[in-house]
Design a protein around this nucleic acid. Structure first.
Lengths: 157, 157
DNA sequence: TATTGTTATACTCTATAACTATA
DNA sequence: TATAGTTATAGAGTATAACAATA
């Protein structure tokens, strides 16, 4: 899988940085950290997400498409590739002959268990660049923001 | 360009959220907002970044590859597609016959000018979910983090 | 010879549309 | 007929390796 995207980052903050630019750059910083670590294991971000989703679920293709917000045909391909690598397996549903369940293989679970803590550590390290009080304040702000955003989303349904 | 990725998001925060998860989810939230808006104009994130980079620069292919942290062959393809859409142009350097300069066309500049404020507004809106004091604290934390990270990067060279 | 850029090739990821099989 | 999933097809985006042109 030599064509896996290589790690990449984004222009460093230079001079004055608007709040908006700050958020955007932070998002690139985090995503790049994740992608870089994932690439070490020859995984893309979407594959990492797939492994994460399957750690505590055994969804069918349709549910997986909703969870990942992809078209069902995209999920077919995603699972094809993951299956080819031995990370997941397709299991026919016994309740409904049309349905295919997707589950992690032992190998997939092992990989997920190996990579997840490293991803955590990467992000934790970035957060650790700040002194404890600042880091806690930042984390608290982010939590509030995410909660507010989740509320917004719910309200708009 | 019917195959452009559609907007997509990520699981909402549920229950307890670790600092690391918070940062990761925030990054997905921002990236999705950007991608969603970009998709409205049939642009991908990398194309948006390209337009942004070219707004105040006229780099050659090599410099562009460094700015975007892509392989030069990837940039060739990226510019091919953007050129085909009339967004950028290749200009041979007069100083060095090997060099090709890339610049926005009027159309590319117009598009960049139209999209940029919308992207800003999207992110500003997310930030606006917090009360002013919390939002300012968050922004300040992010700035400090980015500055610290930039310092790290420099130190490790 | 070294550098700049393109091309050939291959693979992932994504979508739309058409299809098959089951309900 | 409706639903679940796959397949055919197309295109963006990425990389490596080989190449051509210029310095």
């Amino acid at each position: 899988m030599a064509s896996r995207s290589s790690p990449r980052s984004v222009p460093s903050p230079q001079g004055e940085l608007s709040p908006v630019d700050g958020l955007v750059q932070l998002s690139f910083l985090i995503q790049n950290a994740l992608a870089r670590r994932a690439a070490e294991h020859d995984l893309s971000l979407i594959q990492i997400r797939l492994l994460g989703v399957l750690r505590d679920r055994e969804p069918n293709m349709n549910e997986l498409a909703k969870l990942l917000e992809l078209d069902k045909s995209s999920v077919s391909g995603l699972i094809d590739r993951a299956e080819r690598r031995g990370l997941v397996g397709r299991v026919p549903s016994r309740a409904d002959g049309r349905v295919v369940l997707v589950r992690l293989t032992d190998e997939g679970r092992a990989l997920a268990s190996k990579v997840a803590p490293r991803l955590e550590a990467d992000v934790a390290k970035i957060l650790g660049l700040l002194p404890a009080t600042a880091s806690e304040a930042l984390t608290s702000g982010i939590s509030r923001l995410l909660i507010a955003h989740a509320g917004e989303q719910r309200a708009s349904l």
